[in-house]
């Protein structure tokens, strides 16, 4: 395609959007509404996966050594943890730290351990795994290491988190796909109205020898303009509302923490731009097909 044709097509797309201003605005409204709904799902999805991720990252397995082991023996245990390929990272908890934690936990009843040295406290390792699904095997492996007194982990909790994570991912994907399909249907219908209103023009263009693409492109440009405009308004709305919400949640103490506004905006921006262009272009192409058969 020649440059002057491209210029003509883009210009024509803008002119047409402007000439059918009312229709264009109606379409922008529909796109905006769909985008806001999509944005809400996206925000929920992002926050859920952010929080599951955070839960997952919390220490799940703690390996306790026998209290009477000497440094050499502890180092051997540490080595076997370190060399295990399934371990993502581990933290060393010394006797002193263990005692401090115990005191913290006891609170007012600290006198129970008063006078006792840290000698009776076990050294332990907090272990994080690459894949939570392997925890059962890892735990039994660690238990069999000589000098390991106990391995603490919560199978139920891990299973629960794993379940939620999968469920959230699948559920969100399904919702987003359904929503995209609905949005595209609505938009292609709206553009169909524009195309229908101008079927005569399309017909005339065909009669004087315009190629299909020459006719199609300005409509696609129009669709993309509408899609992007709707996406832009939707983006602003989501940003403002999320900004307010984020401020409110950040004030209080919550187990559930929110993804930062910046990250939301980044994700929403590229999704909206892609979706806006995509539904605009595909919607136009679908709607115009019928009228090109002359």
């Amino acid at each position: 395609m020649k440059l002057r044709t491209t210029k003509y097509i883009v210009k024509e797309g803008f002119i047409n959007t402007y000439r059918n201003l009312l229709m264009s605005l109606a379409s922008v409204g529909v796109v905006t509404a769909s985008m806001i709904i999509l944005g809400v799902f996206l925000v929920i999805a992002l926050n859920l996966s952010y929080n599951t991720q955070k839960l997952k990252e919390q220490p799940q397995i703690q390996v306790f050594c026998e209290p009477e082991l000497d440094d050499e023996q502890i180092r051997t245990i540490e080595k076997s943890i370190k060399n295990d390929s399934r371990v993502k990272k581990y933290t060393y908890v010394s006797k002193q730290e263990a005692l401090k934690k115990a005191k913290e936990m006891l609170g007012d009843d600290q006198d129970v351990v008063e006078g006792l040295g840290d000698d009776f406290m076990p050294v332990s390792f907090i272990v994080e795994l690459n894949n939570l699904k392997e925890s059962q095997n890892v735990v039994s492996a660690f238990k069999s290491i000589q000098g390991v007194g106990n391995v603490r982990y919560s199978q139920e909790r891990i299973d629960f988190i794993l379940n939620i994570a999968t469920w959230v991912q699948v559920g969100n994907l399904a919702l987003i796909i359904i929503l995209l399909a609905v949005a595209m249907f609505i938009i292609s219908n709206t553009i169909k109205l524009t195309v229908f209103a101008r079927r005569k023009e399309i017909n005339i263009m065909k009669y004087i020898g315009a190629t299909d693409w020459f006719i199609r492109w300005p409509f696609i440009v129009e669709g993309v303009i509408i899609g992007l405009a709707g996406a832009a308004i939707g983006f602003v709305a989501i940003s403002i509302v999320y900004g307010i919400l984020w401020g409110k949640v950040a004030e209080g103490v919550n187990i559930f923490s929110l993804v930062s506004l910046g990250e939301i905006q980044f994700n929403v921006t590229y999704t909206f731009v892609l979706v806006g262009i995509g539904i605009g272009a595909i919607g136009s192409t679908i709607s115009i097909r019928k009228y090109l058969q002359v």
Binding site: I15, N203, Y207, I208, G209
Partner: peptide, 22 residues
């Protein structure tokens, strides 16, 4: 795909003029 090129090689005038209103 070749139809547009045939149509460009002729001029056509219709009863209902068929001008682009915009």
């Amino acid at each position: 795909k070749e139809i547009p090129y045939l149509r460009r090689s002729l001029g056509v005038v219709f009863q209902d003029f068929r001008l682009l209103p915009n």
